[in-house]
Design a protein around this nucleic acid. Structure first.
Lengths: 148, 148
DNA sequence: TTATTATGGTTGTTTTTGTCAACTAGTTTT
DNA sequence: AAAACTAGTTGACAAAAACAACCATAATAA
């Protein structure tokens, strides 16, 4: 068991380093990781609210408020006040926001493509299957998050 | 191929979220991610220098200099001037540094342990094997980094 | 009903993290 | 020995993020 834990930690470090996970979407873009994460999640949900997102990402609500404000200023999202609860503002992505998200997504795709371009088909199949197995096995944790 | 890229991206997001990769070592500790990374690598190498580490992690050398200074002030590392090249200072971990590193490592182990504690043996085997496959397939990238 | 407490969000302030540029001292190249 | 380069430090600053006080609204309890 202890040996397995060491192996998993080794994998984690390996993956963090090799894949450059954290910057996969935002490297070379004018958006920060947090902005991209929020934008992504606003698009993912319907009628997201600031406090939901704050809780989901475990970000300070003031910080989230400012980022949302910024995204709104840049025209990537809209804030729609709820008529039931006048404290709430529902967040929606705009067309421009969708475009930005597409660009970020394409950037990430390029990175992944470069990562695997020299690998032969057989190993790519194994790679994908292995990832799917890991997802399956670990997916009881947290509410699976999304797609893009 | 495009489908595989999407699957890999999905896995990346999944893994980032579920495993909490970036904070695996440092959550709940008084050390920042960068400090932990440098400390880890100083321990890993023999006679590391600031500029090596700066290049390795692609961190600003001023930034590295300050962190190293800080680690040194806290007694986690020592700086030993080279007698051959008087510009250089070799970095060595101290006993206290080793202890801190052990604590960080134990913290990460705890996180991993909690992550897998409810999984049955058969799936853990598959999990480990899948990780090893991924490492094998992707390890032509960058010079494999380490162990802890 | 009204007083109390909790929630959603904003804003001012500060801390932490990281970048950029200038600089010193030492080393290598020409 | 002059010019160019390298290792490391430092000051100034920008970006990312946390902390705390606050306002308006809403839910709960008296």
């Amino acid at each position: 068991m202890e040996e397995n834990i060491q192996k998993i930690k080794k994998f984690n470090r390996f993956y963090l380093n090799v894949v450059g996970l954290y910057s996969q979407y935002t490297d070379g873009s004018p958006y920060s990781m947090s902005e991209a994460m929020l934008l992504f999640e606003i698009n993912e949900r319907n009628n997201a609210t600031a406090s939901e997102l704050s809780e989901f990402f475990d970000f300070d609500k003031g910080y989230v408020s400012r980022i949302i404000n910024d995204l709104s200023d840049r025209g990537l999202i809209r804030r729609v006040p709820s008529s039931f609860d006048k404290r709430k503002k529902y967040l929606h992505i705009t067309e421009l926001g969708e475009k930005v998200l597409r660009d970020l997504s394409n950037n990430a795709s390029g990175n992944v493509r470069r990562m695997i371009e020299e690998i032969d088909h057989k190993d790519i199949d194994i790679l994908i299957r292995s990832m799917e197995e890991i997802e399956r096995i670990l997916s009881f944790k947290k509410g699976g998050k999304s797609n893009a």
